[in-house]
Structure formats: C-alpha cells, structure tokens
C-alpha cells in the first residue's frame, strides 16, 4: 500500500458524516471491545479452571454442584490412579514415540522437497507442482487409503499412524516459498562456480539458513502428531499400540473405566472405582492438556511467524 494518505483528506468517508451526537464515542467503543473480549477470555479460561479444581476435589462435591471457585475436599486420588495406570503410561510412551518419529519424517521430507521445488532450474517443476496441488482438490477418500495401507502391510504398525499424513501440500508450498525468498540465486550460483554440488549446497548452506522454517515445521507437526487420533483409530487394533489420544478417548468418551485399573468383584471397590472414575476424567484432561497450554506463549511466537512466512509472496 502506498503511503500517500496525508494528501487525501477527501478520501475519508464524508458521506458517513452525521451529527456528532448520533455517533458512538470512540472511547465507549473501545471500552466495549475490552468488555466483550474479557467475556470471551473468561469463557475460555473458566471451563479449564473448573476442570483443574474439579480434578482435585471430592467427586461428591463436584456432583453436588458445590465446586465453583476453589477445590472442595482436596484429594489427589485421581492423579494417584492415573500415575499408577499402565495403559495411560503406555499410551503416553507410544505418543512420544509416534510424535518424535512422525515429526522427524515430516520435517525431513518437507524441507528437502520444498528446497527442490524452490529451484527454478528443476526440470518439470510446474508439472510436479500442479500434480501436488491436484491433491488439494480431490481426495481418494478414507476407504481406498485404508486399503492401500492394508496392501502395504502397514496395518497395526506405527508406520500406519506416522506415514499416511506425513506431508501436507500447504506445508510443502510454505517451505518452497521460504527458500525462494530467503535463498538468492546468486548465492547458489557462486557456490556452483566453486564446485559445490546440489547436495552439498543443500546440506551446508540451505539447511543451516532454514532454521526458522525447520523450527516452524517441527512445531506444527509436533502439535498435530501429538493430538492426532483418527489414523490410530482406523489403522491400529492392538490396544498396546494406542497413542495417548486413543486411550483418552476410551476413558473420557467411551467411559471405559475397566481400562483404568483392575476391577475387583466386591461392591465397595466398585463404588470406589466409580468414584475415582470421575476424578480420573478431570485429571486426565489436566494431565494431557496443561503441559501444552503452558507452552502456548512459546508456540504462539513461532506460529505467528509461520503466518508471516506463508504470507511472503513468491
């Protein structure tokens, strides 16, 4: 946008001029945005806060509606149960593994592929880009993809969770435009004159200069892999391979209490299990959400930067 506006008092909307008394004063308006946004923030914070205090409150008090602003009848039974549940720890371990492997694969493919696509001297570049973009508009669908995964013998393995969603077209395009903008052709030409091959230039010049792209891609994929559940749901049958999100689904949504600890036969322990089950639900939400929320200010910085990266025109 050009910065010539000081000379254009006429461009202001004179048609919209009304007597001053009819207008809402600016201060009132900005005050009302503060009020509205505060309400929105409260609507986001309070449910999370309630879950936090309910996770350490007596379940009877929660069920009776006596928990509002602070915990009632402090108890850590829910967390004790969570910490002693092998299924949850196994899910946690699986998630760590899938997230680490999946993120490494995605980032490597995207950075290498994005770099190659950014090179104007790559033969058939337009055709390849066109083919990739097609996949944005048409998708084979869930069932054919499932059959392909089956055909490859990946069902019920970690690779079925990690590979099918590894590369998104948009991320590839972001990587491509990143290299186009940050890596001037002259730099590469100079390196080529000195005898550097494409590999050598990529690994010793391009990758070290793409640190911010790599950080951004790592964050995007870590969050996405950690939160993913659907591929695990359709491709895995073996409960010992479930990632945390699938374990959470069974506990929180299917209310499968039997998976959270052994159920012995007598009634008293059944009642106890049911009591703790509610605590476990609140506790699980806290356990799996608050670490990520604590990292949000940090993540936000990089994701906002990502929005800027994507915004760079080629």
């Amino acid at each position: 946008m050009s910065r010539t506006s000081t000379e254009s008092p006429r461009s202001a909307p004179s048609a919209g001029r009304r007597p001053l008394s009819n207008r809402i004063p600016d201060s009132t308006f900005s005050l009302s945005s503060v009020v509205l946004l505060s309400a929105a923030c409260l609507a986001i914070i309070y449910p999370l806060y309630f879950i936090l205090i309910a996770s350490v409150s007596d379940p009877a008090a929660v069920a009776g509606g006596r928990v509002w602003l602070r915990p009632e009848g402090l108890t850590f039974d829910g967390y004790a149960r969570i910490m002693s549940d092998p299924a949850i720890w196994q899910g946690f371990g699986n998630s760590v593994l899938y997230t680490a492997v999946g993120t490494a694969i995605s980032v490597a493919i995207i950075v290498a592929g994005g770099y190659a696509l950014s090179r104007k001297d790559l033969p058939a570049r337009r055709t390849i880009t066109f083919l990739l973009v097609i996949t944005l508009f048409f998708d084979g669908g869930m069932i054919p993809r499932y059959l392909v995964v089956q055909e490859l013998g990946l069902l019920n393995t970690m690779w079925a969770v990690v590979l099918p969603g590894a590369v998104g077209v948009w991320n590839l395009i972001i990587a491509k435009s990143f290299f186009q903008v940050t890596m001037p052709d002259e730099l590469r030409e100079a390196a080529q004159l000195d005898g550097a091959s494409d590999f050598r230039f990529f690994f010793t010049v391009a990758v070290p200069l793409a640190k911010s792209l790599i950080v951004l891609m790592t964050m995007i994929h870590m969050v996405a892999n950690w939160n993913a559940f659907f591929d695990a749901l359709i491709y895995l049958n073996d409960a010992s391979k479930y990632p945390l999100q699938l374990v959470l689904r069974n506990i929180l949504i299917q209310s499968d209490i039997s998976s959270t600890g052994a159920m012995s036969g007598d009634l008293a322990s059944y009642a106890e299990t049911a009591r703790v089950a509610e605590l476990v639900k609140y506790g699980m939400i806290v356990f799996s959400t608050f670490p990520i929320l604590a990292a949000v200010p940090f993540l936000q910085k990089h994701f906002t930067k990502g929005a800027m990266l994507g915004a760079v025109k080629n």
């Binding site: 995207i110 770099y115 083919l131 054919p144 490859l152 590894a166």
Partner: peptide
C-alpha cells in the same frame, strides 16, 4: 531430495485416487 515427497504423494494420495 524431492523423491521422498513424490513417493509419499504417489502412495498415499494418488494410489488411493
């Protein structure tokens, strides 16, 4: 460098298509 990405699209996008 581009091959892994191409393989990924060939296998998990175009084969299902």
């Amino acid at each position: 460098l581009l091959l892994p990405a191409l393989l990924h699209f060939a296998i998990f996008k175009f084969w299902p298509m």
